[in-house]
């Protein structure tokens, strides 16, 4: 993996995780509303638009990443996002990391390392 590839990969992980967290924040802030009211409330949250902005950035970053690595490697390395998002969910939203989640996270992390450095 070249230095640029590595940087693009890390940026992808950071931007994707931040985007997911922003959407989660927008969704939970509006959880007391239902149906269309829920959507209207979410659309009025600044978190929602931060999430959209981050996804636009990620779209470009992912394209750049794909110009440097084969598609099959890219999707495998992309799975690392799951690991970071689960840890971030634990830190910010107090989601539980149960035994199966931990095993899953470890397997995915190990898998990405094997692909990335293999």
């Amino acid at each position: 993996m070249s230095q640029l590839t590595f940087i693009l990969w890390i940026l992808n992980v950071i931007v994707d995780t931040s985007g997911q967290l922003a959407f989660k924040a927008a969704a939970t802030n509006s959880a007391e509303f239902s149906g269309m009211a829920h959507w209207r409330h979410m659309l009025a949250r600044h978190w929602f638009w931060i999430g959209i902005g981050l996804y636009v950035i990620e779209f470009v970053l992912w394209l750049a990443f794909l110009s440097l690595v084969p598609l099959s490697v890219a999707v495998m390395l992309g799975s690392f996002n799951i690991v970071v998002i689960m840890i971030a969910g634990r830190l910010w939203f107090k989601e539980s990391l149960t035994k199966w989640r931990l095993i899953g996270i470890l397997l995915i992390a190990l898998g990405t390392v094997v692909v990335g450095f293999g």
Binding site: M76, I82, R101, I103, G104, I108, T112, V114, V115, G118
Partner: peptide, 23 residues
């Protein structure tokens, strides 16, 4: 795209899939 299935890719891919199934 003529990607090749190298041994690290197969092993890494299987580990990731196993992880996803655990989740």
């Amino acid at each position: 795209f003529n990607d090749t299935l190298t041994i690290p890719k197969v092993i890494g891919g299987l580990l990731i899939v196993a992880g996803i199934l655990c989740l």
